[in-house]
Simulated assay, not measured.
Amino acid sequence: MYRVSFLTVWLLLVASPSSLLAAGGLEFTPFTGHRFGGSFELDNHNNRLDIDNTTDWGFTISRAASDSTRYEFLYSHQDSSLADTTDPDNAFGLDIHYVHLGGTVDVYSLDYYQEKITPYITGGLGMTFMNPSQRGYDDETRFSLSVGGGLKWYPTERLGIRFEMRGYSTLIDSNESLFCDPGCNLQIEGDAFPQFETNLGLIFSF
Rank of each mutant, 00 (worst) to 15 (best):
A91W: 03
G183S: 02
L186P: 01
S205H: 08
F129R: 07
L101V: 13
F40D: 02
N47W: 05
G149T: 05
A192T: 13
M127W: 12
G93K: 13
T60K: 05
L125F: 15
A22C: 00
S144Y: 07
Y120K: 10
L7I: 10
F206N: 11
L200N: 04
T85H: 08
A23I: 00
I172L: 00
Y137Q: 05
F73D: 02
D89C: 04
L151V: 11
L11G: 02
T198Y: 06
R63F: 01
L12K: 01
Q134P: 01
M165V: 14
H34F: 15
F59G: 01
S169G: 12
A23S: 10
I117N: 09
V107Q: 05
Q114H: 15
Q78C: 11
T141W: 07
L151S: 11
D79P: 00
N175P: 02
A15W: 04
G25T: 02
Y71C: 03
R48S: 13
Y113W: 10
H77F: 12
D87T: 10
R3N: 12
S16V: 10
E157S: 12
I61S: 07
V99K: 03
G123F: 02
N185D: 15
M130Q: 09
R35I: 12
S177V: 04
P119M: 04
V147S: 14
F92V: 01
L171Y: 11
A83E: 14
E157C: 02
S5G: 12
P17T: 04
P132C: 07
I172P: 00
V105S: 15
E197R: 14
E197I: 08
P30Q: 06
S177F: 05
F92T: 00
G124A: 05
L94K: 05
N53M: 03
R63N: 09
R3G: 12
N44L: 10
T128P: 09
N47Y: 08
L178D: 01
C184K: 03
R35M: 13
S109P: 07
F206Y: 13
I172A: 00
T170Q: 00
M165P: 00
E164C: 10
H97E: 14
D191R: 07
G148K: 03
S16E: 04
E164A: 14
S81F: 10
G123K: 04
V99P: 01
K152S: 13
S81H: 10
S76R: 06
A91N: 11
F36M: 02
T69Q: 13
D111N: 12
H34T: 12
F40Q: 07
Y168K: 02
D79M: 08
L26W: 01
F196V: 08
G183H: 05
N175Y: 06
S144H: 08
T118I: 12
D111Y: 06
K152F: 02
L7T: 11
I117F: 14
D111G: 13
D43F: 04
P30C: 04
S177G: 09
Q78D: 06
L110T: 14
S174Q: 13
Y98N: 10
L82A: 03
Q134M: 11
D50V: 03
I203S: 08
V9R: 02
S80Y: 07
